[in-house]
Write a protein that binds this DNA or RNA. Structure first.
Length: 745
DNA sequence: CGAATGGGTGGGCAG
DNA sequence: CACCCATTCG
């Protein structure tokens, strides 16, 4: 035991040791990116166990993703062995789900409730709007959803919401909210917010339940605390009230989920909320080179609301950051592809060491089309979001919980079985007026007759569902899924279709089955409901397999918590990253900057930043200007290159009509004229035009159109000098010294 | 009454 | 470019 203990603290720096051994009372660990946060958490759990401060089942560790939970579980198992199995290592949602499945009857739901995702929410809201005779244009679904979501986050129920919003629109929103919540209950369903909100409600209404969990969890740890919302904070606070051994770990600089309610104040104010809290900062970075850290530090220093931190390492300076100006998104993808080939053929890196990160999922297409290496795309369409999986999933959910009208409506006519919108509308109306679920209607002969000529088909459908319900937890999951495929006619309809697309869908369904198999194998007590929960809560990133030798493409958001030897951050253009939606709003811009910080700090050895002067967005070609974030990185850390001007000049000889303005979009339309003028001059007598002025790197210059800038690169080119100039407002431009008409400052 | 087709529109990150 | 809705056809 003594030995193990010393081992446990071996290899930790002083700060980390302190965080591991400070087990009692509230503790805030401000852990910079790459500062060994997971190590601290896992060792802290092990330390508590080794010192017999608590039994495994008395420890609750909350992470943000399932992937993080699994990793923590594995790493703790490596230290303490089997004991790790009884620790609650969960995400907020899965922890709450487990609590709810046990006691939800106390709130008037039944334990087989379904979980509604954003799509289901949308359907439900649409129904509400229709019933209330409200127009989607005046009450956009997205805004309704976000209003309801933030109300739930602030624990404002329908009544309270109505009180606080008594203007015309507010009243309507209150009505939608009330109806939506009522519908959820009728469907025996919960949205993601409810999972936390209902747990808190359960605790509030049932002190005995709360007390049980308060007593149970002697030590509570929360990872990624900067991304918790108010509800999650309340949930954790309630649980921690008794023992007060709460340790939160986070980095305010990596808070990137404000858009879904994350409240950065939770971490900034932790010490106010828990006035005796200890505070430990981890600033030594074990991941990246000093160059990368300097860049990250410099960028994030532009934010106002933050706790001062400076990452450092003793691992050396490393290589400069490559910044590449590209003509458009195809050029960008080709450049990245080329660099990847170079990196891999050098033998220093393999594909799995490399990641491409971007702001929006829409950017993947150009990349995918132009990559010449094995790759994987994370997120975008979740596996469970494809149509065929959603269909089967809806069947499974209806079988599990027949009161779920939303899912029932979704599949009652899939595949086509002659139950059209009109009939479905009738069933819904019946259900509404009788105060029962649609399934109740269609399984009752009394109502079926009233449905006229469709009744035979409906009868058939409800028979299928009722038949399948018999098999729940009686036969293996995979067999049940097979039955769903065949008995619903879904498989047949795909076979008949027999298009490449249909075959793809069949393949996907096979994969779905293997996921079920996997679940049955991995989980101790597999149940039908457990499988559905599992699906509701996994994300694409959870399935990211680091062993496969392929480069990986994902959004900057998904990349949080991951690291790669080589990182490409692409599309660093104003309006894309930072997003145009953050323009003029300081707090949103700061969140974008934090996202940039997250991106930079994913890189261990080599970081590439690319941006294009032109990009196709929303189907239109737009001119782009480099992101301000690039300019925030000290120039001395960068090695700038581009492909724009070379193309530009190459085009003179080959295609006269092609003025090059298409490639040089960043300068705007006027560049057409300027450049034709330059061609004229240069064909006359290039020698004459040769600049007599000499330039040096670092000099500041003034350009008529581009404004002030600094020379960051000089290349000799045919007796002239090509200057790479970083302009303050428009980004980098490559200009020939003799033609640029520069004024030294 | 149900299915198919075309036009218009909207498009950020996510458990 | 994908999805949703409205219109038209069967």
């Amino acid at each position: 035991m003594e030995n193990k203990m010393t081992n446990l603290l071996d290899g930790l720096n002083d700060r980390q040791k302190e965080a591991v051994t400070t087990t009692e009372g509230p503790l805030l660990v401000l852990a910079g990116a790459g500062s060994g946060k997971t190590k601290v958490l896992t060792h802290r759990v092990a330390y508590i166990l080794e010192n017999r401060l608590a039994a495994p089942w008395e420890i609750l560790a909350i992470t943000f993703t399932n992937k993080a939970a699994n990793e923590m579980c594995t790493r703790i198992a490596n230290i303490v062995g089997q004991m790790s199995e009884d620790i609650w290592i969960k995400t907020f949602h899965s922890a709450c789900l487990r609590i709810l499945r046990r006691d939800i009857e106390k709130l008037g739901y039944t334990s087989n409730f379904n979980i509604y995702d954003t799509n289901d929410q949308k359907r439900l809201i649409k129904d509400c709007l229709r019933e209330l005779n409200l127009n989607e244009d005046n009450y956009p679904i997205k805004s309704v959803i976000s209003k309801i979501s933030s109300a739930k986050d602030e624990m404002i129920d329908c009544k309270e919401f109505a009180k606080r919003n008594d203007d015309f629109r507010g009243e309507k929103y209150a009505m939608i909210y009330a109806r939506y919540q009522q519908k959820l209950k009728e469907n025996n369903a919960m949205d993601f917010d409810d999972l936390i909100a209902k747990t808190v409600e359960l605790f509030k209404d049932n002190p005995d339940v709360l007390e049980y969990y308060q007593n149970k969890f002697k030590y509570i740890m929360v990872d990624e605390y900067q991304d918790t919302n108010n509800l999650q904070y309340i949930f954790v606070s309630m649980l921690a009230e008794k023992h007060r051994n709460i340790c939160v770990v986070g980095d305010d600089d990596q808070s990137i989920y404000k858009f879904r309610g994350a409240n950065i104040r939770n971490i900034l104010d932790f010490e106010k909320q828990f006035d005796d809290a200890k505070n430990i900062k981890l600033e030594q970075n074990y991941r990246s080179t000093q160059t990368i850290l300097d860049a990250a530090n410099a960028v994030i220093a532009n934010n106002f609301e933050r706790k001062e931190k400076k990452l450092w390492t003793n691992q050396g300076e490393g290589e400069k950051i490559e910044v590449r100006t590209c003509s458009d998104q195809v050029d960008e993808a080709m450049y990245i592809s080329g660099e990847i080939e170079k990196l891999v053929s050098s033998g220093k890196y393999s594909y799995k060491d490399i990641a491409i990160l971007y702001r929006t999922n829409a950017q993947t297409r150009a990349l995918e089309d132009n990559l010449s290496c094995p790759y994987r795309v994370l997120s975008g369409l979740r596996f469970y979001d494809t149509k065929e999986i959603k269909d089967i999933l809806s069947y499974l959910r209806v079988i599990y919980n027949p009161n779920d009208d939303v899912n029932l409506t979704r599949i009652i006519n899939v595949p086509k079985r002659g139950i059209g919108d009109t009939t479905v509308g009738k069933i819904a109306a019946f259900a509404e007026s009788m105060g029962v679920s649609m399934f109740d209607i269609i399984s009752d002969e009394k109502y079926l007759e009233a449905l006229g000529r469709s009744s035979a088909k409906i009868r058939e459908f409800s028979a299928i569902i009722n038949n399948l319900r018999e098999y729940i937890d009686n036969i293996p999951l995979v067999d049940l899924m097979d039955k769903v495929f065949t008995e619903t006619g879904y498989a047949d309809s795909l076979m008949t279709e027999n298009t490449p697309e249909a075959r793809g869908r069949i393949e996907n369904l096979q994969e779905f089955k293997s996921k079920a198999l996997e679940y049955e194998k991995n989980v101790e007590e597999p149940t039908f409901g457990g499988f559905l929960d599992n699906i509701s809560l996994v994300s694409d990133i959870d399935n990211y397999d680091t062993e496969q030798d392929a480069i990986v493409l994902m959004t900057l958001h998904s990349a949080k918590g991951l690291e790669f030897p080589v990182v490409f951050m692409c599309g660093l253009e104003k309006g894309l990253f930072p997003s145009y939606q953050s323009e003029g709003e300081l707090d949103k811009l700061e969140e974008e900057r934090r996202l940039c910080y997250v991106g930079i700090t994913r890189a261990r050895e080599k970081l590439y930043i690319t941006y294009a002067l032109q990009r196709v967005m929303f189907g239109k070609t737009e001119s782009k200007v480099v992101s301000e974030f690039v300019g925030e990185i000290p120039e001395k850390l960068l090695n700038r290159t581009d492909n724009v001007v070379r193309k530009q000049f190459a085009s003179y000889g080959s295609a006269r009509g092609y003025s090059g303005s298409d490639l040089f979009g960043g300068a705007g339309k006027k560049s057409d004229m300027d450049y034709s003028a330059i061609i004229a001059k240069s064909t006359k007598s290039g020698a004459e035009m040769k600049s007599s002025v000499t330039y040096k790197k670092g000099e500041r210059v003034m350009h008529k159109k581009f404004g002030e800038g600094m020379i960051v690169g000089i290349t000799e080119s045919g007796g002239d000098m090509m200057l790479e100039i970083l302009f303050d407002n428009v980004g980098t431009r490559n200009l020939m010294a003799s033609f640029a008409r520069l004024k030294k400052l």
